[in-house]
Design a protein around this nucleic acid. Sequence first.
DNA 1: TAATTTACATGATATATGTCATGGATTAAT
DNA 2: ATTAATCCATGACATATATCATGTAAATTA
Lengths: 221, 221
Amino acid sequence: MSLSTSNFYKFTLFESLSPDVIEKIEQNHKLQTFKNNQPLFLEGVYPTGVFCIHSGKVKVFSLGETGKEQIIRIASEGDVVGFRAIFSEEPFKLSATAIEKCEISFLKLDFFNELVHSNPLLMQSILKEISKEVGERAVAIKTMAQKSVKERLAVILLVLEDIYKEDMINLTREDLANFVGTATETTIRLLKDFKDKGYIEIHGRKIKIIDSNGIYRETGY
Amino acid sequence: MSLSTSNFYKFTLFESLSPDVIEKIEQNHKLQTFKNNQPLFLEGVYPTGVFCIHSGKVKVFSLGETGKEQIIRIASEGDVVGFRAIFSEEPFKLSATAIEKCEISFLKLDFFNELVHSNPLLMQSILKEISKEVGERAVAIKTMAQKSVKERLAVILLVLEDIYKEDMINLTREDLANFVGTATETTIRLLKDFKDKGYIEIHGRKIKIIDSNGIYRETGY
DNA sequence: TAATTTACATGATATATGTCATGGATTAAT
DNA sequence: ATTAATCCATGACATATATCATGTAAATTA
């Protein structure tokens, strides 16, 4: 499947690439539809390629000893997922699962490696993106270690607002709890608190943010 | 200083480099002594170079809103510190401070950049190291979010055992608490518990691990 | 050696948050 | 539609851990 108006320009990671390289990606990707709850990859397994998300949301998480998922990020349109394990030359440290219907292009490992090593600019983009992520994760460690659950929920809601944009946040309470790093019940209680304070509206599972500033004040930043 | 006795071979990051490139580093580094509590760099500032630790320990941390440090790692002999911010093209997200007397070589930004871009193998080593770190930090986020303070202390003690090797662990209780992400008092109480169980000996500030397996059982892994 | 600071240690107390239990409300499937 | 399966919600309760207070020991400086 090759589209003349390429869908690959929207990936930050590929921004630096020339039209002919983008065209090469067009010729080598394999478009797949993932349904809700379908895994893209599992921790412990060696990568066989990378996933380029055209639409839909994917949770990236690590499984704790007790079976509790720790969600590390929610990937969405424009994100490339699964490439870190390739460069670390280790099996995946994280799993990824679609949490809604997704359109995703798969790029095979060999092709991706070839691409990276023949395009220094791409290598630099990747190095830049991963470096940013290391920094962000350090901040996340601090947040988990030092902030209260309420503050963390506030932080995560703002993160999700950015990801879901004009759409309402649409995660199960359990996934939300696993992102915040808390019990589902606690998440539900705190959401109610935020609702009562007028920061959010709750429409079934969906959460609509109506006062970001209010939430920001709850983050403790 | 001659090639064969170079101090730069011991840095994992430079393993892939040929003798003549190592020689170039020898000619361009600036050896400095840092004393206890002396900062190498501060979060929010743009990097001016990288630090290669020949001896001594450095805490790498982020400052919380309340002034509490979150220690992300303890860097030691053979570690190169401060290069992630260079590739992210952002100011430091972390600060670094010597926690004992250190011998450290400074490589200027321009020289380091030149080095990286003229040595594809070095670029790959760096990409590999950073990728590993992203994975490790995801695990750290999970640990902070899901494990009890006692379990986290156990995890950190094992990490520190690796870093201090045959030496006793030598951190202030406050630094240890800031690594675990807890209150100093709690750390002290839990250390006593581990001592009573025969896992460690306490010699003033110093901690000697005498039963790693016992500690491992406390990690909950 | 005395003096001052810093770090270590322990007790008392409050509370945020996890856990267990139960019921209602959506959502999905037949 | 009717059933089945998730998911959401709320209450009661237990407890790990932070905070506050205070004293002792160790390290640093004068």
